[in-house]
């Protein structure tokens, strides 16, 4: 069953060729009649599906459109045309901890981050101790986030994001979080989530990780799909090209 269904997605940014990005600059250019718009097509005719329990990796050089595609899947960027259908809850694991505030305590941040992801406040409140414990930061939950080390922040973010079962996980290079111990633990949890039927879309430059984790891979070039198929095959072709 397809949990994610992407059909003919195009995404075009319209940028004003306005050097300064200021109202003053815009006004000056308007007077001189020098307003030019530039259309930048970030995604071209992207179609694919992801089934429950399937891991799909997205490959490509910097600027190929990987992160943009992930944002479209997260519903953060609306596509210019085409459609994205997603069934169930989405856990966007893109730059974990984006919603954290340094002056708020660990517990407050966990609650806020969870509600941002659309989770129920009451339910999360009961889960805070468990989330802290899994991340190994139980003793720090009542201190402001600014006193956390970056490893601790990454751990608590991962723990929060994966605490509730989501139908869709969008992962952007977050598999290498924390020390070796925690990496093992987080990989096990990811495997568990996948086994329970989560669909995963993964963006990574780590080809070994892609080979071991992903079932299928999609290779993006200049915003379009260049190749799609079994992960090992696509990775091999991609590695051959970039060398």
């Amino acid at each position: 069953m397809a949990v994610i269904e992407v059909k003919n997605v195009d995404l075009t940014y319209r940028v004003l060729k306005n050097r300064t990005g200021s109202l003053k600059g815009l006004f000056r250019d308007m007077i001189r009649g020098r307003i030019r718009v530039l259309d930048f097509q970030a995604l071209r005719d992207i179609s694919f599906t992801v089934d429950a329990g399937e891991v799909v990796a997205i490959l490509g050089r910097n600027g190929a459109g990987k992160s943009t595609l992930l944002k479209v899947l997260a519903r953060v960027l609306p596509p210019t045309s085409g459609s994205v259908k997603i069934q169930g809850a989405i856990a966007p694991m893109i730059e974990l901890g984006a919603g954290f505030h340094p002056e708020m305590t660990g517990a407050e941040n966990v609650l806020f981050y969870s509600v941002l992801m659309g989770r129920d406040m009451k339910r999360v409140k009961g889960r805070i101790p468990a989330i802290g414990e899994w991340a190994g930061v139980s003793d720090h939950m009542d201190f402001p986030m600014r006193t956390f080390s970056s490893g601790m922040i990454a751990r608590i973010a991962f723990s929060t994001a994966t605490d509730e079962k989501s139908e869709v996980l969008l992962v952007d290079e977050v598999l290498s979080v924390g020390d070796a111990d925690f990496q093992k633990k987080s990989k096990a949890r990811m495997a568990e989530l996948i086994k329970s039927g989560a669909a995963v879309v993964l963006v990574s430059h780590d080809m070994d990780a892609v080979r071991t984790l992903a079932h299928r891979a999609i290779w993006l070039e200049n915003g379009a799909i260049k190749m799609e198929g079994p992960a090992k095959k696509v990775v091999a072709a991609y590695e051959k090209q970039i060398q």
């Binding site: 953060v76 730059e95 919603g99």
Partner: peptide, 9 residues
């Protein structure tokens, strides 16, 4: 923006 570009709210 850091939140809005990552999580749908």
């Amino acid at each position: 923006a850091p939140v809005l570009t990552k999580i749908y709210v």
